Computed example of a mutant assay.
Amino acid sequence: MSVKQEFRGLKGLKKQRRVQIIALAAVALVASTALIGYAMRDGINFFRSPSQVMSEPPEPGETFRIGGLVVEGSIQRGEGATVAFAVTDTNATVPVTYTGVLPDLFSEGQGMVALGRMEGDTFVATEVLAKHDETYMPKEVVDALKEQGVYQEPAPES
Rank of each mutant, 00 (worst) to 15 (best):
S2C: 10
G37T: 10
R77L: 04
G12W: 01
F47Q: 02
P156S: 08
T122C: 06
Q52S: 14
T122D: 00
G68W: 05
I44V: 15
G9K: 07
T82I: 06
V19H: 08
E134V: 13
R8H: 06
L13W: 10
L29F: 14
E140V: 09
R41N: 08
G43I: 06
A125W: 02
N45K: 11
E140A: 14
D42Y: 03
E157W: 07
Q5H: 08
Q52I: 02
A34P: 05
T63F: 10
T97F: 00
P95N: 03
E72K: 10
D121E: 14
K11D: 05
S107H: 08
G37V: 06
D42K: 10
G73M: 01
A39V: 09
E134Q: 15
V113S: 08
P138N: 09
V87R: 05
K139L: 13
S2T: 14
V3I: 09
G80N: 11
Q152Y: 01
D143E: 14
L10F: 06
D89A: 04
P103C: 04
T135D: 09
T97V: 12
R18L: 13
E108L: 04
L105V: 03
F46Y: 12
V128I: 15
E119F: 04
E72M: 06
Y98T: 00
A92G: 02
V96S: 07
D42F: 04
H132N: 11
Y38L: 13
R77N: 14
E127I: 09
G73A: 14
V101T: 14
R117A: 14
K14L: 13
I75F: 05
F47T: 02
Q110S: 11
K4M: 05
M40Y: 08
G80T: 04
I22R: 10
A39K: 12
V27L: 15
A26V: 12
D121T: 13
V83C: 02
A28F: 11
D133P: 06
R65L: 15
L129I: 12
G100H: 06
V83K: 02
E59N: 08
F47H: 03
G116P: 04
S107M: 09
F46R: 12
L115I: 07
R18G: 06
Y38P: 01
A125C: 07
R41C: 01
E153Q: 11
L145G: 03
V27C: 09
V141W: 07
T63W: 13
K11I: 00
A26W: 05
E62F: 08
E134T: 12
F64Y: 10
R8I: 07
K14P: 02
Y98M: 03
S49A: 14
F64A: 05
P138G: 00
R17N: 09
S32D: 07
R8Y: 09
L10A: 04
G120C: 07
G43C: 09
Q16P: 00
Q20H: 09
V101F: 10
F46P: 01
L145I: 08
L105Y: 07
T122G: 03
R77T: 13
Y98V: 02
Y38D: 08
R65I: 06
G37F: 11
A25S: 12
R8L: 11
Y151V: 05
Q20A: 09
K131Q: 15
S49F: 05
S55T: 15
K139G: 10
Q76A: 12
D89H: 03
T90L: 14
V87L: 12
E62W: 00
Q5F: 03
K146V: 07
F123Y: 10
V128Q: 02
